[in-house]
Design a protein around this nucleic acid. Structure first.
Length: 521
RNA sequence: GUGGCCGUAGCUCAAUGGCAGAGCACUGGAUUGUGGCUCCAGCGGUUGGGGGUUCAAAUCCCCUCGGUCACCCCA
């Protein structure tokens, strides 16, 4: 029989009490902050139809999706994020009133190469505001993320804000649509990191027609080196047309119109103009004041609507009213973020201590998602998600690791084997009093049990015996004001029902969650 | 997905082709009903897994699994 231990699945982690407590504490701190701002908890499935995430995030994401066929032959996936499910649920059961402010937490899954701060299963917590448009809603969620970080004691972070609506606007005005539009939209960061030529190369690979040379007509013989057989056939058709049939239009004019009609938006000039704009847009970043000026200059130079930039400016101004430190905020018009459903404001929060995987938070506005996922009414929406494991790492870096939490406030130890029933009864009384109480079931000597209690950070140990007056026990403080640090005379019996007040007098909290004062650092 | 580094006791690490070890932790004892310190003792390993070279492998080689760092991408 094979006895080799089963190994953990790659990219997952086993958390002991310390790690699990830290994750839970950080999640709870975030959720408390969300709730304090009027957000309400929702919960959505880990399992979803793969179609949900494919439709939302595009086919590119399929390689990172944990997807499989279930026993009924349905295509299922483990969710890679929470937003899509929340929106799906909101379409299925619309909120009675908008805006609907919700938060959700839970594990998500992405098939990626694991590294420090990156796992295949990890926890997210985040908020969504459904049914609210405009800079105020955007500013609120950004500030909410910042407030949660403040609550956690995280200080070494930077908030970067962009707006993909600007580029989206320009691409639309240039008449670029469909796949080409999608490729251009997602190339913002690529342009900055690898240069505009890298984008050009990728576009040429994925969409060979994008850079078709201009049409030319010589001697009445159209030469149309446009890729695709239909273009040639059309050229012959046009060439065979007598000039008299063309009215006042030239042959070239008609051909160009036909090409445009047949090939939609494939005008190479538009693509080149879009690429040039993308290259410039990616350079606009820095502190809010300077970047906003530069952004406005760029848009005006291209004769473009400065509306999206004005919204961005308003968002940044509102952040100050929300109490977010402006020194922490940066503008980056080249920020596009990976997931393609953002339509306006986008933002991310990075932490200096985390190395390559430094992003704590990502979010933005997604006004089209409800429609994309089948909602009948368009619902403007905005939100963000934290990566909780990364929050734990950032918190530890800025404020030191959380102190260990005691298993319980009191460890009840039977004086001898014969005293076990008394100990059980005593523990029950203490718990009824709201005091987290563990029972020592090891059977070891009292001295060893007390040593164990001290090492395990129990603030109080209680020894019970049938020899004491009924309903009483002998408590001993291992922490707090009553701790002496050396072997004392044996404590006197105290009625178990009075232990709560006794704990209060020593400044020891009753529930689990108190920390051993002498062990904190 | 590409490339580099690493993997030895529960944890942190030694052992440079020649007996697999230390500290911490854990268990018991030193006062048979009360402290973390100290002292004594004990427990603890297919050296990630598999194959190869060698008289001899934790050590060298190959494969594989896992971790990690830099890219890519993202929380």
């Amino acid at each position: 029989m094979e006895r080799r231990p089963i190994e953990r699945v790659r990219g997952t982690q086993d958390l002991g009490t310390r790690g699990a407590d830290a994750l839970d504490a950080v999640r709870a701190t975030c959720e408390r902050r969300f709730a304090a701002h009027g957000f309400r908890r929702v919960d959505v499935p880990v399992l979803e139809a793969a179609e949900l995430h494919l439709r939302k995030s595009g086919l590119e994401i399929i390689s990172k999706l944990y997807a499989f066929h279930d026993l009924g032959g349905r295509r299922i996936c483990l969710r890679p994020e929470l937003t899509a499910s929340i929106v799906r649920a909101a379409i299925a059961a619309p909120a009675p009133r908008l805006p609907d402010k919700v938060f959700a937490s839970g594990p998500v899954f992405r098939y990626e190469r694991p590294s420090r701060g990156r796992f295949r299963q990890f926890f997210q917590t985040g908020v969504e505001v459904l049914g609210a448009e405009g800079p105020l809603a955007d500013a609120e969620v950004i500030a909410l993320a910042g407030a949660a970080l403040d609550d956690l004691g995280i200080t070494g972070h930077v908030v970067t804000i962009g707006n993909v609506g600007i580029l989206s606007d320009v691409i639309g005005r240039l008449g670029l649509t469909g796949r080409r539009r999608a490729i251009l939209l997602e190339s913002l960061e690529e342009a900055r990191r690898h240069g505009i030529d890298a984008v050009r190369r990728r576009l040429a690979t994925l969409d060979p027609d994008a850079f078709a040379p201009p049409l030319s007509v010589t001697d009445g013989t159209p030469s149309l080196p446009v890729a695709g057989g239909d273009a040639e056939a059309m050229a012959r058709l046009v060439a065979g047309t007598s000039p008299g049939d063309l009215g006042r239009r030239t042959l070239e004019d008609v051909t160009a119109r036909l090409v445009a009609r047949m090939q939609g938006d494939q005008s190479h000039g538009s693509v080149d103009r879009a690429l040039a704009f993308i290259a410039e847009l990616g350079e606009v970043r820095g502190n809010p004041d300077a970047a906003l000026v530069a952004g406005r200059a760029l848009l005006e130079a291209h004769g473009l609507d400065t509306g999206p930039l004005a919204e961005l400016e308003k968002t940044v101004d509102l952040l100050e009213a929300f109490g977010l430190d402006r020194a922490r905020v940066r503008i980056d018009l080249g920020l596009s973020r990976g997931l393609q459903y953002y339509t306006g404001m986008v933002f991310e929060i990075e932490h200096e201590s985390l190395g390559t995987e430094r992003q704590l938070c990502g979010g933005g506005r997604y006004d089209d998602l409800v429609r994309v996922l089948g909602g009948r009414q368009p619902v403007p929406a905005t939100g963000f998600s934290f990566g909780i494991e990364r929050l734990v790492m950032a918190r530890d870096a800025d404020a030191g690791p959380l102190p260990e939490i005691a298993p319980a406030t009191i460890l009840v130890v039977p004086a001898t084997a014969a005293d076990v029933p008394v100990a059980i009864a005593c523990a029950a009384v203490l718990r009824r009093d709201g005091i987290a109480t563990a029972l020592d079931t090891s059977g070891r000597a009292v001295r060893a049990a007390v040593t164990h209690a001290a090492r395990a950070n129990f603030p109080v140990v209680v020894v019970t015996s049938g020899d004491d007056p009924p309903g009483s026990c002998r408590p001993r403080a291992l922490a707090g004001d009553g701790a002496t640090g050396s072997p004392p005379p044996a404590p006197v019996p105290v009625p178990a029902a009075n232990i709560g007040a006794w704990l209060d007098s020593l400044g020891i909290p009753r529930g689990r969650g108190g920390h051993h004062p002498e062990r904190e650092s």
